[in-house]
Amino acid sequence: MFLLTPCVVMAQNDLLGELEKDSKKETEYAFATFKGTRLGNGHTVETKPAGTLEFIFGHRFGAINGGSYEMFGLDQAYVRLGLDYGITDHLSASIGRNSTDKTMDGYLKYKLLRQSSGVKNFPVSVTVLGGAAYKLSPKDNKEVAPDFENVDRLAYTGQLLIARKFSPNFSFQLMPTLVHKNYVTQSIESNDQFAVGFGGRIKLTRSIALTGEYYYNVSRVSGSPYYDAMSLGIDIETGGHVFQLLLTNAIGLTERAFITETRDNFFDGDIHLGFNVTRAFQLKKNK
């Protein structure tokens, strides 16, 4: 009698356990691998969800080691104003204007693969990026070279963004990148340049994260006046905004500018204070 009682009680009491047993195994996709679409100067795997428009204001001051005459860099400003729009949850488009070299730029970003666990297991998220940048400076083609044409002002970027969210607090990203510039001074650089970027974030609190990013340019020629771009930053998220405060040696915010044309050496103290501020607007409500 008493041996049987527990069986009956079990059968009646563990409805929740039965529910868990009955519920189908699902695939869990990693989300919010990074707070924003930019890690520092470059991109993250993140795109904007469908119907979301994001305004990005990227700002870099002058070099901190400019001394008190330059107010430690605060007298100078390099700005990129940009808009990102989510066409679908996986495809977004972006346009921008960077005061560095008076550059107009445009990107398309597509989420190719998503990190997942459960029924479908995949270790990383992969996003592809294709972009073009058009330099408006200098105004007159003849200032560059006698045979310089408008088409020589263009540069293209192809990039794979590969990220893994190891835990809610730690994400790491690899960024193999190809930059093609239609016109270069052959003695100091080549038209096609390949770089390997890497970076990540460590969340300190649920709203604050530390970020780091480094682009190693593999195609650097000896005697090049350029340096690898890097940044160290802090992400602060508040509602619809993300504030990214960072220290970087780059002043340009297009891949061409920071991967191939960074003239300052971080380790010589040519460090610029910068920030990216974003504001998202939901243009189309989800249904």
Binding site: P49, A50, G51, T52, R206, S207, G240, Q282, N286
Partner: peptide, 13 residues
């Protein structure tokens, strides 16, 4: 949620 960002924050934060 109607807003994607809100949904992300709800889950993440």
């Amino acid at each position: 949620f109607a807003k994607s960002l809100m949904q992300e924050h709800f889950n993440e934060k």
